[in-house]
């Protein structure tokens, strides 16, 4: 009996659904893409995939190369996984995803070792560690295995652009404070480099080490939350403070009156 009543009640909404669906898909696609950059930025808001952030942000070139590596792995893995999502049985899906991601990481690792050896040396073990980056496996599990190819592609692009922008901002601060300026070396030919070091004498070399990395990262996460978030719910109730202060004023006024009468 209840089911029939619910069915009758649900039909008007169901009738309206197909028209809404068309509009929703376009709006959703844009939301999916932009979410990865600001609202759900993997590094600054969701705090996923933090391991490569600190070693990759020691200079701007390192941040760009890490962004390219993560972009390649994330886009390809999301594409492949959403293409094969119907074929893979549910029990062994995690090892399958892991093998796909690991093979992609091996490809990009060997490419970087061959064509940009200096960058590969400075990033060290953190290129193979992209395999266990929480962003990639998390997105594969949560999004790519459930959505269409185009949505997964947009999500991958958005997430990696968010990651790249966060890394770039942190790298700008670290390099400027740590070396006094910016130095851009061509990753494929390390003889060519352009540098602009206006504040070289005032540099703080600790900022390009791990200590400065943690510090800059923490401050930028806090500042990003300050800029993007509006008032936190619950913090606006200042009525208790106001009443406390006004009672205090009354008490002082009474005390003054008492002194005068005495």
């Amino acid at each position: 009996m209840k089911n029939q009543v619910e069915k009758v009640q649900n039909t008007p909404e169901n009738v309206a659904q197909p028209e809404k669906n068309v509009e929703k898909k376009g709006h959703d696609r844009k939301k999916v893409f932009l979410a990865g950059i600001i609202k759900d930025n993997p590094v600054l808001v969701m705090l996923l995939g933090l391991c490569p952030v600190i070693p990759a942000t020691t200079s701007i070139i390192n941040a760009l190369m890490m962004f390219i590596a993560v972009l390649f792995v994330l886009v390809c893995s999301n594409l492949i996984i959403s293409l094969i999502k119907g074929i893979v049985p549910k029990e062994i899906r995690i090892p399958v995803y892991i093998v796909i991601i690991a093979s992609l990481v091996t490809v990009i690792d060997l490419l970087l070792q061959a064509y940009a050896p200096d960058v590969s040396n400075s990033l060290g073990v953190f290129i193979p560690l992209i395999t266990v980056n929480c962003i990639i496996l998390g997105r594969a599990e949560a999004f790519a295995s459930k959505n269409s190819v185009l949505d997964s592609l947009l999500d991958a692009l958005g997430m990696s652009i968010g990651f790249g922008l966060a890394c770039l901002v942190i790298a700008i601060f670290r390099e400027f404070l740590g070396t006094g300026g910016f130095t851009l070396t061509n990753p494929f030919n390390s003889d060519q480099s352009v540098s602009w070091l206006p504040l070289k004498d005032l540099a703080l070399p600790v900022m390009v080490q791990g200590i400065g990395g943690f510090l800059t990262f923490g401050i930028i996460v806090g500042l990003f939350a300050w800029i993007t978030k509006s008032k936190v719910p619950g913090k606006n109730s200042d009525t208790t403070l106001k009443s406390q202060y006004s009672t205090l004023k009354e008490i002082e006024a009474c005390r003054k009156e008492g002194k005068e009468t005495k």
């Binding site: 705090l47 791990g210 200590i211 400065g212 990395g213 943690f214 510090l215 990262f217 923490g218 401050i219 996460v221 806090g222 500042l223 939350a225 300050w226 978030k229 936190v232 913090k235």
Partner: peptide, 23 residues
């Protein structure tokens, strides 16, 4: 701590000072 720094941000700053100590 102010609301935007609470949680992970202030934890990372504390980790930075721990790294200074272990240095």
């Amino acid at each position: 701590t102010k609301y935007n720094f609470k949680g992970a941000a202030i934890g990372l700053v504390a980790t930075a000072i721990m790294a200074i100590a272990v240095y």
